[in-house]
């Protein structure tokens, strides 16, 4: 038991480093791809690493009216929470490090913390722009949480019915039994709807266009981040990068948990390497659709439109998905 705890403690820095490197790498890929789609050449892929290094050497200003300990503490909290997400999701074919200590419900709360840290940091910085941004962020948090919660609850319900023995909210169990194999054709359509809902929640969750109303540079001067500079800004930059990888990993664990080593009949180290590379490919696809494509294709929405999109369309679609999965269960039980 003691050895296990030591092993886990030793793995935390490794996972943190992996999350940071992957996050920044994908941020770079995101910028290059967005540039290419706009017929530009774009920055080099390592640009986010340079940005981070530059932000670390800049002066760190704390406004005179700010609540100092909240203002300085929240960036740390955002990074810590983002990295904690990675400890609870299966990455590159490995089981989550904290397996058995937390499930999807905990992840829903952990996903909230970086946004909440931004909100508190924004209010603490005593700037009217930051206050507006923080209020908008709270509204959009309330909006995207509803379809997300409906989708997650649907998945858990499907598991509790199809596999009564296992913990239905456990992400490791969900990843071990692909959801697509538990349903018939009607349920397949329902699951597809839920998958698309989670992809649509992703830009809201990580705060990119069209759902970055709270951080709009051009209208409210970067919103909650308006007073942040230097090291604190670098930490928020990092939290954003790591959270993108975290949320994409959750999506992959629920809907795309397949490995490639079985198909290629590989053994040992080869299988681990193949699965890791395949995971990177899946991560790339999810980030490409959920972040790059949406942000280049669509302009920013107003905050009222954000609420309407999530509470209206996305929630209705999620409820339809839930109904289809329930209908599928009835059909399967009826022996059709």
């Amino acid at each position: 038991m003691n050895e296990l705890i030591i092993y886990q403690l030793a793995s935390v820095p490794a996972i943190a480093a992996l999350g940071i490197i992957l996050g920044l790498l994908f941020k770079g890929i995101d910028r290059v791809l967005a540039a290419r789609m706009q017929a530009r050449i774009g920055p080099p892929i390592r640009q986010p690493f340079r940005d981070l290094r530059k932000l670390m050497i800049k002066e760190n200003i704390v406004p005179k009216n700010a609540v100092r300990f909240v203002f300085n503490g929240m960036p740390l909290l955002a990074v810590a929470a983002s990295i904690t997400i990675l400890l609870y999701v299966p990455i590159a074919g490995f089981l989550p490090l904290m397996q058995g200590y937390g499930d999807l419900i905990l992840l829903l709360y952990l996903l909230l913390i970086p946004s909440l840290a931004l909100v508190l940091g924004g209010f603490a910085s005593a700037s009217p722009y930051a206050s507006i941004g923080a209020q908008r962020e709270m509204v959009s948090m309330i909006s995207y949480e509803l379809p997300l919660a409906v989708a997650v609850a649907s998945i858990a319900w499907l598991f509790s019915r199809a596999m009564p023995g296992i913990a239905s909210f456990s992400l490791a169990a969900i990843a071990a039994n692909p959801v697509w194999e538990l349903v018939g054709p009607v349920g397949f359509i329902g699951l597809l709807a839920l998958f698309l809902i989670l992809l649509a929640v992703m830009p809201g969750e990580i705060g990119v266009i069209p759902f970055d109303t709270a951080e709009a540079e051009t209208e409210i001067a970067s919103g909650m981040l308006v007073e942040y500079s230097g090291r604190n800004l670098a930490l928020f930059y990092l939290a954003d990068a790591v959270k993108t990888v975290g949320f994409a990993s959750i999506l992959i664990a629920i809907f795309l948990p397949y490995g490639i080593s079985g198909t290629l009949s590989l053994q040992g180290a080869n299988a681990v390497a193949a699965d890791a590379l395949f995971f990177l490919l899946k991560l790339f696809i999810v980030v490409f659709i959920g972040r790059v494509l949406i942000r280049v294709a669509v302009p920013r929405l107003r905050i009222t439109q954000v609420v309407k999109a999530y509470w209206g369309y996305a929630t209705i679609a999620a409820l339809c998905g839930l109904s289809l999965i329930a209908l599928d269960a009835i059909l399967l039980a009826g022996g059709c």
């Binding site: 910028r31 540039a35 530009r40 050449i41 774009g42 920055p43 080099p44 640009q47 340079r50 940005d51 200003i61 722009y129 709009a216 540079e217 051009t218 409210i220 001067a221 970067s222 981040l225 308006v226 007073e227 942040y228 500079s229 800004l233």
Partner: peptide, 13 residues
């Protein structure tokens, strides 16, 4: 942006 230059929304950044 090839050279890493981008416009930001606030003087603090």
């Amino acid at each position: 942006e090839r050279f890493g230059i981008k416009l930001v929304g606030t003087p603090r950044h």
